[in-house]
């Protein structure tokens, strides 16, 4: 953000070239440490992981032995039915959870926005699921879903909706749905709070003008709130999609990827292949494929929404 502002300033100063160069140099100096740290902890390992995905790797007493493998790991992975299923599962999981979270989150944000009292308390309560460590909330959900003692079965049977206990995590369809519900419970607050912040930034004058012009609440929402909220929505959408696509902890704790392979996401599969089967090449190929897919999705979102996130303030 700051870098952007600096740049627009220098542009407006036009002819003063030395100042511009000086600022640019300062900018580089100040950002260099951060750049090297990021390079060290993300860029280098990512490149190395790409290299691994292109190698046959064997373990020996004197360390790893690499042998060029070309694309063979990728063809092995992409033609494997477990990978294909995990890819399909991850895509559907992402689509469903992110859509539901955006709709619910929007509703919650609108309510929060209209509230005049108790907002602070509600915000704190809302943040609770999001603030809980996923491994812990997943354990809690596994108690809720427990087929023998689970509270959900007590409720369902108490209401007479089922005559016998439902095994929520025992069959594929139910396990997938149950995992999605737990995810939606946990991350809807995150979406709600981002959208709430976005709503706070929209000037109330716009709505006053609209109501003077005779716009109803529904019209105002579609014509004013939603378009002005677009940059915020994109942020929420991007974050959630990236997270959902890499989902690991929730199904790992809740179902271990089961029953069968029903809730096995790409991240769980790559963990199993890398660290349990010690197939480093194919495991890296899964991880790299996942990264590329996510990058492509993010790129598409940015293009479709045609929003320059950094300039959002100036457009309002």
């Amino acid at each position: 953000m700051r870098a952007l502002n600096l740049r627009t300033k220098t542009v407006s100063l036009g002819g003063h070239r030395p100042l511009k160069v000086q600022l640019a140099r300062q900018g580089w100096v100040f950002s260099a440490p951060a750049f090297f740290i990021i390079a060290g902890i993300t860029i280098f390992p990512i490149l190395f992981s790409v290299f691994m995905s292109l190698s046959h790797i064997s373990l020996t007493y004197s360390g790893f032995k690499f042998q060029w493998a070309g694309m063979s790991n990728y063809s092995l992975v992409w033609s494997n039915s477990l990978f294909q299923y995990a890819l399909g599962f991850t895509i559907i999981y992402t689509l469903v959870t992110v859509t539901v979270e955006l709709i619910l989150g929007m509703g919650v944000a609108l309510v929060l926005h209209k509230l005049t009292s108790g907002r602070g308390f509600l915000l704190a309560v809302l943040l609770l699921p999001w603030a809980l460590i996923t491994a812990i909330s997943a354990e809690m959900w596994s108690f809720i879903y427990n087929g023998v003692y689970g509270v959900l079965n007590a409720i369902v049977m108490g209401l007479g909706l089922a005559g016998h206990p439902v095994i929520w995590l025992g069959t594929p369809m139910l396990a997938i749905a149950s995992t999605m519900v737990a995810d939606i419970w946990k991350t809807t607050p995150f979406v709600a709070i981002i959208l709430f912040a976005g709503l706070q930034m929209i000037s109330s004058e716009v709505f006053e003008a609209a109501s003077i012009d005779g716009a109803g609440a529904w019209q105002a929402f579609w014509r004013i709130t939603l378009p002005l909220l677009k940059p915020t929505l994109l942020v929420a959408l991007l974050f959630r999609t990236l997270q959902a696509f890499g989902v690991f902890d929730l199904p790992f704790v809740l179902t271990g990827g089961g029953p069968g392979h029903a809730t096995e996401s790409l991240a769980i599969l790559s963990y199993q292949v890398l660290f349990e089967d010690l197939s480093f090449g194919p495991g890296a190929a899964i991880a790299t494929s996942t990264t590329l897919i996510v990058m492509a999705v993010a790129f598409v979102f940015l293009r479709v929404f045609r929003v320059q996130v950094g300039d959002s303030e100036s457009s309002t």
Partner: peptide
């Protein structure tokens, strides 16, 4: 963020790998 975590998991082992290549059981 979770995908990043998975990547860090992967890359953690990668960093170790890098240091391993010169090691011998001497």
């Amino acid at each position: 963020m979770r995908i990043r975590n998975a990547m860090v998991l992967v890359s953690g082992s990668l960093l170790l790998t890098a240091t391993a290549s010169g090691f011998s059981p001497g």
